[in-house]
């Protein structure tokens, strides 16, 4: 317990277990929401239980964020190599230009091209999520001191070995910070995917807004907020476990 890292993981574990217990217990929600909103005849969104909605949400974010990492990190690596260096300026330009785009607008633009449902949501989340991952991969790799690289080559490492054993480990923290931003944006944007029929925790909120039912809104909003905070803490903990120096990861 004295080790702050172990304590953080322990707190996260307990909080996650409590969250699962909370969303798995629909009777509790029924009671609490009926108490808060005595005027509503129906307080639980009939589409699915919270556990299912949460899993749907995690599936959306999981698929798109995995694609983002699988493609974003290699793209970031490629443009910092000699073979892709021609593309570095345009990739830099696109990532900073693209981050000005509101994620909702990207989601909306995916619909005319790909229709409704899961596919446009995943594609929009994937594309928007790429920006912070690519940007941080580039920033992390470029921050590696050239002396260290020279030392690695001097030790007889090949370019590939230097990348795997020196550059990527040193850039890992910055890359993970990008992944964290990307995942948190994706959890938020996936909520709006409910409007185009992607399911997830956004659906009770959207239904509540349409039917003017406050209970539905709370039923979706509370678990979504907790889910996002837990995911953020999880990624912060992974980020923290990568540090070699005991630097605090705040702000």
């Amino acid at each position: 317990m004295r080790n702050p890292k172990i304590r953080r993981w322990l707190i996260l574990g307990i909080a996650s277990a409590a969250f699962i217990a909370l969303i798995a217990n629909m009777q509790l929600w029924q009671m609490a929401l009926s108490f808060l909103f005595p005027g509503e005849t129906q307080v639980l969104h009939p589409r699915a239980d919270l556990l299912i909605l949460t899993l749907e949400h995690l599936e959306l974010v999981g698929i798109s964020s995995s694609l983002t990492i699988l493609i974003g990190v290699p793209v970031g690596i490629w443009v910092t190599r000699p073979s892709g260096s021609n593309f570095l300026p345009i990739v830099n330009d696109l990532t900073s230009f693209g981050q000005t785009f509101p994620p909702v607008a990207v989601l909306a633009l995916a619909v005319p091209m790909l229709g409704f449902g899961l596919v446009p949501t995943v594609v929009a989340l994937f594309l928007y999520g790429l920006l912070p991952v690519v940007r941080n991969t580039i920033a992390g790799l470029r921050a590696v001191p050239p002396d260290l690289l020279d030392a690695a080559y001097g030790m007889g490492m090949s370019r590939r070995q230097a990348l795997l054993k020196v550059e990527l480990p040193l850039a890992a923290r910055v890359i993970l910070a990008g992944v964290r931003i990307s995942v948190i944006i994706n959890i938020g944007t996936a909520m709006i995917g409910a409007v185009i029929g992607a399911g997830g925790l956004g659906s009770p909120i959207i239904a509540g807004l349409v039917q003017d039912n406050l209970a539905f809104i709370i039923e979706g909003a509370v678990p979504a907020a907790i889910l996002a905070i837990l995911a953020d803490q999880l990624l912060a903990n992974i980020e923290g476990s990568l540090t070699h120096s005991p630097q605090e990861a705040n702000h």
Binding site: G188, I217, I218, A221, A224, A225, A228, I229, N250
Partner: peptide, 24 residues
């Protein structure tokens, strides 16, 4: 600490959820 803790958390909450939590 508390200022940044709160500001960070509110930024993490999905926008639609925060709108919902303010509505009630």
């Amino acid at each position: 600490k508390p200022i940044f803790y709160l500001a960070n958390i509110t930024q993490t909450i999905p926008s639609l959820a925060l709108f919902g939590l303010v509505i009630a």
